[in-house]
Design a binder for these strands. Structure first.
Lengths: 118, 118
DNA sequence: TACATGATTCGATAATACTTGAATCATGGA
DNA sequence: TCCATGATTCAAGTATTATCGAATCATGTA
């Protein structure tokens, strides 16, 4: 991943509303949830929500699939994966990801609880 | 870490120039490098650079310490650590941090090469 | 076709962020 | 003190982003 691309992803998540949307979609799982449900939960106007959904889609963090009248949005774990990989490997060179702290001490735990699939 | 705070950190890194600055400081190590050196390497006007350095400082991603006429800036690994922890645990629930991909498959490698300290 | 509903796009406005020359501050040396 | 240098702050302009009502598009149903 290039710096520019990483910056785009970071900027996309660097907004309270969009970060909230993304977290909601992660919680929602692979099936995703539709736009109006997101709007209800986060108290966002439809137009504003669409704006942010479009932004997140454009950078590849989420995907929307129409199902009848609804469009189900879901998180793209792969993109997030790439971003975290970039941050830990290319950006931080492992400095921010040492065992006792961020992401590696609970690998087993997460691996277990992620039985739901990668 | 709260969502708002995480969004602030992400937004801070969500700009090509600031991400480049941060990466440069990570490379530079704990001693850090001074502002004009950063400006030279990245081809940034002094005022612009100060603006971005102030932003990164404000959110806690870097720290500046004056040493004679120079101010040495260095990366705060701890803050980055917190951010990555937030992204993997609170935001992604481990989904984006599974063994085969982002950050955990090379723990040993990084731990080894990080002899320089956590 | 007519209508209801989910969602997006348009358009206008407001707010925020970015850039940079010039001025200023801080430090050390002559 | 005066000057040079590293760095920041100020001020003004430019550009980008965010918000949201209204209009439009898309789909399913009667």
């Amino acid at each position: 991943m290039e710096t520019l691309n990483a910056a785009e992803l970071l900027a996309a998540l660097g907004h309270e509303s969009r970060l909230a949307i993304f977290r909601l979609l992660v919680e929602a799982g692979p099936e995703g949830i539709n736009a109006s449900a997101i709007g209800e939960q986060l108290g966002m106007a439809p137009a504003t929500l669409s704006f942010h959904l479009a932004h997140l889609s454009r950078v590849g963090l989420i995907t929307g699939e129409r199902e009848s009248r609804f469009i189900h949005y879901s998180a793209n774990y792969g993109t997030m994966d790439d971003l975290i990989a970039f941050l830990t490997h290319n950006c931080c060179q492992g400095n921010a990801c040492l065992p006792q702290t961020a992401c590696c001490d609970t690998t087993e735990k997460r691996r277990a609880k992620a039985g739901k699939k990668a």
